[in-house]
Amino acid sequence: MHIPEGLIPAQQAVVWYAPAMAFLGAGLIGLKRHLAAIPSSRPLVGLMGAFVFVISLMPIPVPGLGTVSHPCGTPMAAILLGPLTAAVLGSVALLLQALFFAHGGITSWGANIMSMAVGGSFAGFAVFKISRRAGLGLGISAGMAGFVGDLVTYGLTSLQIALALHGDEPAPYVWGAAFVSFMPTQVPLAIAEALFTAGVVVFIANERAEILEGAVVRP
């Protein structure tokens, strides 16, 4: 979902930057308060930061298609730390990837934040909360959050691409076509993200339930 440098017109880049910076600012304030209130959650923040960076940078080949893509990691971080903190971790990862790893860009940073860091986090978090309230198990809820969060990220990326590059064609049509073109590659990766998210959340809840006190793991 890393939209490269230059594909988004300057005006649209600014439009994506504005909410992205608002989420980033709110997330940083929230993270500072969270760490001050619960210093023992620092290692979990560090672990999730490293996970999000690696997961969202890892080009995973999809057999038979000849394409590569990556999961997001932000739904998992949102379940364990809250969506705003996950948005901060995703934003930092995206910045490093744009600066040093030829993934994404500085002008497209705002758009990429809105799709992966914000969209993936909040969609995953919402699905997890709704699933838990509906009485579904921890692993199933986390897996669904990972799956939906991943696809929402690519749905937003498709929207951004469509708005930027639709030309004479209707933007909704281009949006749909771009989203459909992602599906053969992204659905297998969304399933992988679902399994990984469920595994990590269940493992942490079983091993260190106490560090998740107050987190959203409990309905």
């Binding site: 394409t67 498709s158 691409i161 073109s181 992602f182």
Partner: peptide, 10 residues
């Protein structure tokens, strides 16, 4: 592997 799927779509 011909590159990232986003680049392929865009």
């Amino acid at each position: 592997w011909e590159g990232d799927v986003t680049e392929g779509a865009a």
